[in-house]
Design a protein around this nucleic acid. Structure first.
Lengths: 174, 174
DNA sequence: TATGAAAGGAATTGCAT
DNA sequence: ATGCAATTCCTTTCATA
């Protein structure tokens, strides 16, 4: 007798509407608030999204456990680190480059302190490196020492970043 | 009688050596620890860098007040937001574009929810937009609706991001 | 699933070295 | 600049609706 035909079975509440990734409206509001203030206290977060602190706490933990939130990172003014010059370096790889050597190369680039981000584009033969360095001679040294001189690299094109704007932070692909 | 001439005035300690931006070694260690774990508690931070919690607290506040740390942001897995496709769109502007219209255009692009980052390159006539969208048709719609159709835009080139790695987060230019 | 209460822990401030 | 101590606030868990 599991029939639910009594006419009072309308359990679909508006707040239960889940969008992509199984996120409901409260989840999305939490992400929005935390996006640019990751160190906000749980109490503040709860007040900002209009729920009890215990509720915000459970939701936030769930977002982390599900991997929706991949981490909390600190935004640093690169100028204050002595890196007042940013650039995007477009790297073209040799057509015949072997997969293993490309991966070794990529790993090496990723580990360099000047490197902020690496975008691997359109297959395996092309990427863009976002770097922050002290000045133009350090930029040249970076490109020469770590890119142009590698056998895997066919070409590089360097563009100076004159202005930069960030809306959100994407997780590294895993 | 405030003289401190008792011969024990050698206060210069090696830890006081400051590098670029007036940061000493402890500041740099704090930034390193916090870079990928912005929500770490002050007590944990202090233990991680080997000082008392009060010291870590004072240093962290100073880093924020001086603008070395520009903020704490949350890294979100874009797939879980229904944005499983990322791309870099290279935008060439019309040579005759007026400064004001370029700025209006840039402001409009920055406000779009698909946009993660915008790099303004090599002057004022060229930039790269990092976007996260649901699929290839959404990507096409983004490029057509917000870029190609604008009078300021001369050309666009779209590259799909197959892999992405982030080492650090730079502050938006102010 | 959301909430409120209770206990334990942490942040923040002032003060002393 | 660092360490310590006291107050206040927050986090965390659990029972409840």
């Amino acid at each position: 007798m599991d029939r639910s035909d009594d006419g009072a079975v309308v359990r679909a509440v508006s707040k239960d509407v889940r969008g992509p990734g199984g996120l409901d409206d409260l989840d999305r509001r939490i992400l929005e608030v935390l996006r640019d203030d990751a160190r906000m206290s749980n109490a503040e977060l709860a007040a900002a999204v209009g729920v009890a602190p215990s509720t915000a706490h459970v939701r936030l933990r769930s977002l982390r456990e599900r991997g929706v939130i991949s981490g909390f990172v600190t935004s640093v003014d690169q100028r204050r680190l002595g890196r007042g010059l940013q650039a995007l370096v477009h790297v073209g790889l040799r057509p015949g480059a072997r997969r293993a050597s490309i991966e070794d190369f990529a790993r090496e680039i990723r580990g360099l302190p000047q490197v902020l981000q690496v975008f691997f584009l359109g297959g395996v033969d092309d990427f863009i490196v976002h770097v922050a360095v002290s000045d133009s001679s350090a930029l040249r040294a970076f490109v020469v020492d770590h890119l142009s001189s590698k056998p895997t690299v066919a070409s590089t094109t360097t563009s100076i970043v004159f202005d930069y704007y960030r809306n959100g932070v994407a997780a590294s692909f895993g």
